[in-house]
Amino acid sequence: MKWRAIPLSAWIGIVGLAIAIFCAVFAPLIAPYGEREVVGDIWLPMGGDFVLGTDNLGRDLLSRLIYGAQTTIFVALAATVLSFSLGVMLSFTAAVVGGWTDQGLSRINDLMMSIPTLIFALIVLAVLPQELWILILVMAVLDSTRVFRLGRAVAVDVTVMEFVEAARLRGEGRMWIIFREILPNTLSPLLAEFGLRFAFAVLFLSTLSFLGLGIQPPEADWGGIVKDNKDGIIFGIPAALIPGAAIAGLAICVNLVVDWLLKRTSSLKGGRGDG
């Protein structure tokens, strides 16, 4: 693995991700003002004391953005990790055990996927109390259906391979087969999928917050900042676009990295056939 072999697009993605994660981790240290601190007039233009201007309540937009990175990234990451653990565990179980377990889990998954994610989330969030852990859980469960579908497909592909059959015939237990035979062979597609699910979680969380159903104010998250400042648009104030651009930027960076990862693994498999 050489540094030179990483293409420019992937570098852009890696650097972008690094900046976002740095902001998220060290938000209180690098933010010039407090998260909820009113520091000036509303919707001040960019420049001067406030690099990105102020928001609809006169808070520093840059500081809101940095704190927003923390909330957005941690919530999205938590939801993705949870959705992944759930999806991978269930899908591998379905693929290895087979039979009725597989049928049951797969049909439930089909049913959940037949309702569009956003619509499903709206229905469920209409009933449940507005709390952070519930939001994360809902995002995770809904998203795990996608992970399940991929995980099962990948695991079934590996399960039918003869080395798995050989392990079964040797008398190996189920845990050995899942963790030692199947998992190592599914890591690269799953890793790429993790990136994509994370990008989706960022977009999804932002959309929910934008609709007023995600993170609740006064806590800052990128979708919520868009919502707070959307009324400024009519007056030509671009404050709402800045967090929007941050969301887009993060998603693009993740996609760039995943794109490169996928190309790398697929070229590993590629080989010339018979001459």
């Binding site: 080395f163 015939l169 035979e181």
Partner: peptide, 16 residues
């Protein structure tokens, strides 16, 4: 299980 072992056509897919 030990006393009966198996060889496959595709050695490629028979090894992890």
């Amino acid at each position: 299980l030990r006393q009966v072992q198996m060889l496959y056509q595709m050695a490629d897919t028979a090894m992890n």
